[in-house]
Write a protein that binds this DNA or RNA. Structure first.
Length: 873
DNA sequence: CCAATCACG
DNA sequence: ACGTACGTGATTGGA
């Protein structure tokens, strides 16, 4: 039997110490983290140095304790816990849980008493004990087998109080610490002691007489003022001693044997640290993760492919050099079954007929991760993938869309699997990035295939528990193939058109720049908000309406309010607008054109928290449309075949229709059933005027309210968007919710659901967890509440268009059409089509999209076409 | 590498 | 009272 080493931590005291020792840090949500951070640093160090076998963190429970019965002013006059600290306690508890350390608190007792009781129990059993606190009171617990660690100055700096050390420092035994407090008192706990007796006098008295009682027995040996004070305050001294005495027989319900410590839950810890934004700790963790031993994996590198190795169900992984799977180097393939793992080098893959026919055989089930990437990359080698039956990345994303899914190692870590390295560890990063020797590379690839096979059952189990098979097998998995095809097709871009526009814009910008510089009376970088701020608000003396964290805000909404005040403002706004078009949409887009004259975006399918797609390299979901100058960029997006047309079909008000369906609001449903202009209808209801009397301003206001509703309304947000007072905005909202009681009901219900379940769901049972919904932090809680209202709406709309895309791809194939789906922009689909298919598309596309799902309101799709994307209006 | 800005739904 | 609209990506300047 290994000797026990028991660590008893005073949670409250350590949190206080850390809080006051460190500057206020905050994470990205504005939650303070300094106390938790300090506590963590201390804990890390202690764990490493002491390697305890048993641990507990004791906390004070509630405000009053048995000590208040003795002395009602106990701990009186103490500053209330600062809110910046109290908001950290929930995180502290989470952290401790992640370490898998027991927490304990006991009504009516303080942490001291829990520690005192446990240390006595341990002592009697002959175990080694370390007590850790920021409070010197605890030193009274020191004994031959118990050392008390008291933090000093910072939080990781520790003073170790053994019996000997106390003797040396004070000339007292540990028990006499209580007497010391009895005489001198303790200001922080409002323990009075004997007025006029400080540490010096108390120590002298105790060295002579041993204890408080001893002092009074020999009271006649004192004289003068001191004697007077002692006599006068005898009762106070005894009460003080009692207060300072740690209870060592508290009625605790735990036993030391229940406090075993066997290391943290790494995944949980990573999650908590992430939440708290403890970056340095996370990096350190990566470093240590590298050193953890992986279980040995036996695999076979194939120089030729015997058809016999291909089975009906296999995990398959295609290793790529980076995320840009449309162009990057392909490094090899691994295959895994229950008993076998193979690695096939890329040149062997390319030359293997057996592999090719297995890959395209739909009856052979493939288990992959990021099947879209692999499908698109194989496509480049002339290889077609069929029969994808599992996609690890997508599965994990459905289980929890709030996590990031970039590296396979990180994905499977969520499921407790650590036998695969992170790409960065294999390839390095930055300038040092390179492909390692075959030995290392092959093992890495092999482990990925093995990992997919190994983790699949766990992911599937989760999906089944959450009733997400439908979402998984019938939506995301088939969508991956559809998206991969769209990306591989690409979109034709008219390079000359862009270059010509760029030239024109560049000249115009140079002119505006000159203009701005002369208006400012000096040359400066207009693109630098810092320099611009100095020019506008210091040199020109314009009023500062808004500030950012780092200085003056020069954002467009601020500048617009200053437009009348100086000629330079409108020039700057113009410069910004055109500069954006040039840098992002002309120069940026030109850089993304591939050799085939097309751009091949990547739709990220496992990224957003709501279920939407995102688009990168280039982003084709934010091509300008709202202002004409930018919209002209769309003239450069053209069909890839001569004479073909661009086609656009967008859902009209899909989010509000989803809201109507989910809220069952009669008025809203009725409006859509009659196909009313929803903003006019809203204005009519909110302003209590007939439809025909709604003015354009009223409609504009109503439109903003409708947006607000979808986003999870707040009066402040609405007031910003409409440029009105908060009060007026609040009134609008109030009127809206009275007019649409079903919506109010839905919003409340959504928050309730989140509070009860910890998550909200969409039409197709997509989940989003909202851990902050019950937070005591107003900001966090409010954000979670708005998210609870918004995610089901935005997410359900995303579900619907995804379903429409799958149906659309099926229909185009079924009907043997040449038309190609190119892009999805959240509520619209873009196609290129031969002119002879146009008539058919006019009915087919809206029909498919409008019937992707059945709601209790109709879905409506607007259809448009033209020679370029610009002309689809 | 982050903050600010601005493009989209 | 708190301070915020929901979801994205690319570019720029400046530590």
């Amino acid at each position: 039997m290994v000797a026990k080493k028991i660590l008893l931590l005073d949670g409250n005291s350590l949190a206080y110490r850390a809080f006051f020792a460190l500057p206020l840090l905050t994470n990205e949500h504005g939650v303070h983290t300094n106390a938790v951070y300090g506590f963590t640093m201390m804990l890390q160090r202690i764990l490493e140095e002491e390697k305890p076998t048993h641990m507990v963190v004791a906390f004070d429970a509630g405000k009053t304790t048995f000590r208040h019965e003795t002395f009602s002013e106990y701990k009186g006059g103490r500053q209330k816990t600062p809110p910046e600290l109290s908001e950290q306690f929930p995180y502290l508890r989470k952290l401790i849980d992640a370490y898998r350390i027991k927490r304990y608190e006991l009504p009516n007792y303080e942490a001291d008493d829990i520690i005192g009781t446990l240390s006595l129990e341990a002592e009697q059993a002959g175990d080694e004990v370390i007590v850790i606190s920021g409070d010197k009171d605890l030193t009274q617990l020191a004994s031959p087998s118990t050392t008390v660690y008291i933090t000093r100055k910072g939080i990781t700096d520790i003073e170790k109080y053994t019996v000997g050390h106390i003797q040396e420092k004070y000339g007292l035994s540990p028990e006499q610490i209580i007497d010391l407090k009895g005489l001198m008192g303790d200001a922080s706990d409002n323990i009075p002691g004997v007025p006029g007796v400080g540490e010096k006098t108390a120590l002298k008295l105790l060295t002579a007489h041993g204890s408080v009682e001893g002092v009074y027995e020999a009271i006649d040996q004192q004289k003068g003022k001191l004697k007077e004070k002692l006599v006068e305050n005898e009762e106070l001294a005894l009460i003080s001693k009692k207060l300072a005495t740690i209870e060592r027989n508290a009625p605790i319900e735990i036993k030391i044997d229940e406090l075993t410590y066997s290391g943290p839950d790494q995944d949980e810890l990573i999650q908590v640290w992430n939440e708290l934004a403890f970056k340095s700790l996370l990096e350190k963790m990566d470093y240590t993760a590298e050193e953890t031993e992986k279980e040995e994996l036996v695999f076979e590198v194939l120089q030729e492919t015997d058809p016999a190795i291909f089975e009906d169900e296999m995990a398959i992984h295609l290793e790529m050099y980076d995320e840009q799977y449309h162009t990057c180097d392909l490094l090899g393939v691994s295959l895994a079954t229950a008993s076998k793992t193979y690695v096939i080098p890329m040149d062997v893959v390319k030359g293997s007929e057996a592999f090719k026919s297995w890959l395209m055989d739909e009856t052979k089930k493939k288990y992959m991760s990021d099947s879209k990437a692999a499908t698109a990359a194989f496509y480049r080698c002339g290889l077609e993938v069929a029969g994808v039956d599992f996609d690890l990345m997508l599965g994990a994303y459905i289980v929890n869309p709030s996590l990031t899914y970039t590296d396979l190692a990180n994905i499977v870590q969520e499921y407790g699997y650590t036998d695969v390295s992170q790409n960065e560890q294999i390839y390095g990063k930055g300038a040092k990035k390179s492909v390692p020797d075959d030995g290392i590379l092959h093992e890495h690839i092999a482990r990925k295939g093995r990992t997919i096979w190994a983790v699949r059952p766990t992911v599937l189990k989760k999906l089944e528990e959450n009733e997400q098979f439908e979402l998984y097998y019938n939506l995301e998995l088939p969508l991956a193939t559809v998206l991969g095809t769209m990306e591989s097709f690409g979109v034709q871009v008219d390079k000359e058109q862009l270059v010509a526009m760029g030239k024109e814009l560049g000249e115009k910008l140079a002119e505006i720049e000159k203009n701005i510089h002369s208006l400012a009376g000096e040359k400066f970088n207009i693109n630098s908000p810092k320099q611009l701020g100095v020019v506008l608000f210091e040199n020109l003396g314009l009023p500062v309406l808004k500030k950012t964290k780092t200085g003056y805000s020069t954002a467009a909404d601020v500048l617009e309010k200053l437009e009348g005040q100086h000629e330079i403002i409108s020039q700057i706004l113009m410069y910004r607008q055109l500069g954006k078009i040039l840098s992002t949409y002309i120069e940026g887009l030109l850089k993304e054109i591939h050799e085939d004259g097309k751009v091949h975006t990547r739709f990220q399918q496992a990224l957003t928290t709501t279920g939407r797609l995102s688009s990168i390299n280039p982003n084709l979901q934010n091509i300008p449309v709202r202002v004409e100058e930018g919209r002209k960029i769309r003239k450069a997006f053209v069909p890839s075949e001569p004479e073909w047309l661009m086609v656009a079909a967008d859902y009209s008000q899909i989010e509000l229709r989803v809201l109507a369906d989910m809220s069952k609001d009669e008025s809203l449903i009725d409006a859509f059933k009659h196909d009313l202009d929803i903003h006019t209808k809203t204005a009519s209801d909110v302003f209590h005027v007939p439809l025909e009397e709604v003015t354009s301003d009223m409609r504009r206001a109503a439109k903003a309210v409708n947006f607000g509703i979808v986003y999870g309304i707040s009066d402040y947000g609405l007031s910003q968007s409409l440029n009105i007072t908060r009060k007026a905005a609040a009134e609008f909202i109030d009127n809206y919710l009275k007019s649409f009681p079903g919506v109010k009901n839905y919003m409340d219900g959504s928050i309730q659901t989140a509070k009860q379940n910890g998550f909200v769901t969409t039409l197709m049972k997509r989940r989003r967890y909202l851990p902050d919904i019950n937070s005591s932090n107003f900001n966090l809680r409010s954000f979670a509440e708005r998210t609870a209202m918004n995610t089901p709406i935005q997410g359900s709309a995303a579900d619907i268009i995804k379903k429409a895309m799958i149906d659309m791809a099926d229909a185009l194939e079924q009907e043997n059409m040449q038309t190609r789906m190119l892009l999805q922009v959240h509520d619209e689909l873009i196609f290129e089509a031969p002119p002879e298919e146009l008539e058919k598309l006019k009915t087919l596309v809206p029909q498919i999209m409008e019937n992707a799902v059945q709601l209790n309101v109709p879905l409506k799709v607007d259809f448009a076409f033209g020679d370029t994307w610009y002309d689809t209006k």
